[in-house]
């Protein structure tokens, strides 16, 4: 299974150049059944990344462009009066896909944001008293512009907490940029991609990830990190229990991707910036900087 995953990462590497770490984290997030938030300035390949992942995982994919005037019905769907049958029928919205790219989520109003986030949390939507199950697997990759940009409605902390990971892509390095400039059209490349994995296999991998062993010293380490974030003066607010669970799940998946049967403290350290940074209040905006005290000051038991 690990080879499948490696193939998958390699294929994605061909499209998005020089961003292997981010691709791995994104994959880790999806395998942990979490939702992903990509935060960066426009044009660094957020959409490309999500599109590529959807293609490679063989999931049906829909992009929702969040604008300031988008309505919840545009996401979830709405009931339309059928003149022939003389009744209302529900037209499913884009959320009924397996993978959704919520592009520029912070451009829309909080109402539309919360419609999406509620669906993410509950794996189902309720319209006019009727409940519809969302498809499985169900992944949301949301992208957002840095908050200080104009005309944005930043996601509140409670909503941010629902994303398992937040990653930043950043500019490509010199070499990658050159090959990007020289290479083919990315869109074309994506359309040529073939799925590397079946839905059953994906489900199996997800199941196996959850079975990875976490020993008691490791749990101590995670607890120490959480306690530090709660008690230290570096942060205004500490990590929530959900964050702790997320950290463990992500670390387990990471250990699985590294082909190990038990989680090591290093796994926790690797996923920590992506899992914890967006849940902590800190002066800095850089994820590595935010979690630096957690990594540096908490001793491994």
């Amino acid at each position: 299974m690990q080879t499948t995953l490696n193939n998958l990462v390699n294929a994605a590497n061909q499209i998005i150049l020089g961003k292997e770490a981010q691709i791995r984290l994104a994959l880790c997030c999806l395998l942990s059944k979490g939702h992903l938030l990509i935060e960066d300035i426009p044009g660094v390949g957020k959409t490309t990344l999500s599109h590529t992942l959807a293609k490679l995982l063989g999931l049906n994919y829909q992009r929702i462009q969040f604008t300031s005037d988008i309505l919840p019905a545009d996401i979830i769907g709405c009931s339309i009066f059928n003149t022939e049958k003389h009744e209302f029928s529900f037209h499913k919205g884009p959320i009924f896909n397996q993978m959704i790219l919520a592009d520029e989520i912070n451009r829309s109003t909080p109402k539309a944001q919360s419609a999406l986030l509620e669906a993410m949390e509950e794996q189902q939507v309720t319209v006019e008293g009727k409940t519809y199950q969302l498809s499985t697997p169900f992944f949301v990759i949301a992208t957002q512009n840095p908050n200080h940009q104009i005309g944005t409605f930043p996601l509140p902390e409670s909503q941010l907490d629902r994303f398992l990971m937040r990653i930043e892509l950043g500019y490509p390095d010199y070499k990658a940029e050159r090959s990007l400039l020289m290479g083919e059209n990315r869109q074309q490349l994506i359309s040529c991609l073939k799925p590397q994995i079946t839905a059953e296999k994906l489900a199996l991998i997800q199941k196996n990830c959850a079975k990875i062993h976490a020993s008691s010293p490791l749990l101590d380490y995670i607890q120490a990190i959480i306690n530090y974030s709660r008690e230290s003066a570096d942060y205004n607010e500490g990590l929530s229990p959900r964050a702790g669970l997320g950290l463990l799940t992500a670390a387990k998946t990471w250990a699985f991707m590294e082909n190990r049967d038990a989680v090591l403290p290093e796994d926790v350290q690797v996923v920590l910036p992506a899992v914890a940074a967006h849940r902590l209040k800190h002066g800095s905006t850089n994820a590595e900087e935010i979690v630096a005290p957690l990594i540096n000051k908490v001793a491994i038991p």
Binding site: P217, D220, Q223, A224, N227, Y228, E231, S232, A233, V298, A299, P301
Partner: peptide, 8 residues
């Protein structure tokens, strides 16, 4: 056991 705590 084997824990470290910050106290202010």
């Amino acid at each position: 056991a084997t824990q470290k705590r910050l106290v202010t």
